[in-house]
Computed example of a mutant assay.
Amino acid sequence: MDNRQAVGSWLSGPRAAMEDAGADLGYRGEQLGLPQEGPNSIARPGRRIGALAVDWGLSVLIAYGLITQGDSPATSNWALLVFFVLSVLTVGTVGFTPGKRIFGIRVVSLETGAVNPLRALLRSVLLCLAVPALVWDRDGRGLHDRLARTVEVRI
């Protein structure tokens, strides 16, 4: 392997490096019994980040409306609380937040398909901690989804 191949595999990420080494990782969601493309396939990171941005923006707007002083630190604390409540209520009832709906994503339970409120609560607490959402498995699920036994799929 020359330097160009080594740099190319590094830039492509660990998944590409593993595949170059001969490991067959399959597609994202294969181990979960999900299709590779189309409805019910794993939601891609771009969609998920877009949905998160919409939900966070909505939460900031609501928090700013609740705080009349416009104090920035207080607004961000309120925004996190609004984001948490929005996530628990919407994911626990209809399976998606406003941002997820706009980007064509829903959250489903691996066992039943529907996310119950307790599972949505656990998922939302871990999501608000941020670190679990930044640790992904080979299927692209965050640690918050793994612990809550949920997955974000395309609608």
Results as ranks from 00 to 15, higher is better:
Gly99Gln: 10
Gly70Thr: 15
Leu110Asn: 08
Gly57Asp: 11
Thr75Pro: 00
Val54Cys: 07
Leu58Cys: 07
Ile49Ala: 09
Phe103Arg: 05
Leu58Phe: 10
Pro117Tyr: 01
Thr75His: 08
Thr93Arg: 14
Phe103Val: 03
Ser109Met: 02
Glu111Ala: 08
Glu111Ile: 02
Pro117Gln: 05
Val107Trp: 00
Val60Cys: 03
Thr90Lys: 01
Ala51Thr: 06
Val82Trp: 09
Ser72Phe: 14
Leu58Val: 14
Leu121Lys: 02
Gly99Thr: 08
Leu52Glu: 01
Ser59Leu: 02
Arg106Gly: 05
Val107Ile: 12
Leu52Val: 02
Ser59Cys: 01
Leu89Thr: 09
Gly99Tyr: 07
Arg101Trp: 05
Leu81Ser: 12
Ile105Met: 15
Leu81Lys: 03
Asn77Thr: 13
Asn116Cys: 00
Ile105Gly: 02
Ala51Gly: 15
Ser76Phe: 13
Leu66Thr: 05
Asn116Tyr: 01
Ile67His: 14
Thr68Arg: 11
Pro117Cys: 07
Val88Asp: 02
Val107Met: 04
Leu118Met: 12
Val54Phe: 04
Gly92Met: 04
Gly70Cys: 14
Arg101Phe: 06
Val60Gly: 04
Asp71Gly: 03
Ala74Asn: 08
Asn116Ile: 08
Ala53Gln: 07
Asp71His: 14
Val108His: 01
Ala79Gly: 13
Val60His: 05
Lys100Glu: 12
Val108Glu: 06
Ile67Pro: 00
Ile105Asn: 02
Trp56Ser: 13
Trp78Leu: 15
Val107Gln: 03
Pro98Arg: 10
Ala53Thr: 13
Gly50Glu: 09
Thr112Phe: 12
Ala51Phe: 06
Leu61Val: 13
Tyr64His: 11
Asp55Val: 13
Phe83Gly: 02
Val107Pro: 04
Ile105Thr: 01
Leu89Gln: 06
Ile102Phe: 15
Leu86Phe: 10
Val107Leu: 06
Ile102Asn: 07
Val85Lys: 10
Thr75Val: 14
Ala114Cys: 03
Ser124Gly: 01
Arg106Glu: 08
Ala120Asn: 05
Thr112Pro: 04
Val108Thr: 13
Pro73Asn: 12
Ile67Thr: 04
Ser87Cys: 03
Leu61Phe: 15
Ala79Ser: 15
Asn116Met: 04
Asp71Tyr: 10
Gly92Ala: 11
Gly57Asn: 07
Ser124Met: 01
Arg106Ala: 08
Leu61Thr: 12
Ile62Ser: 03
Leu61Met: 11
Phe103Ile: 04
Ile102Tyr: 12
Val115Asn: 00
Gly95Phe: 06
Ile62Asn: 03
Arg48Phe: 04
Gly99Met: 11
Ala53Ile: 15
Val85Asp: 15
Trp78Asp: 05
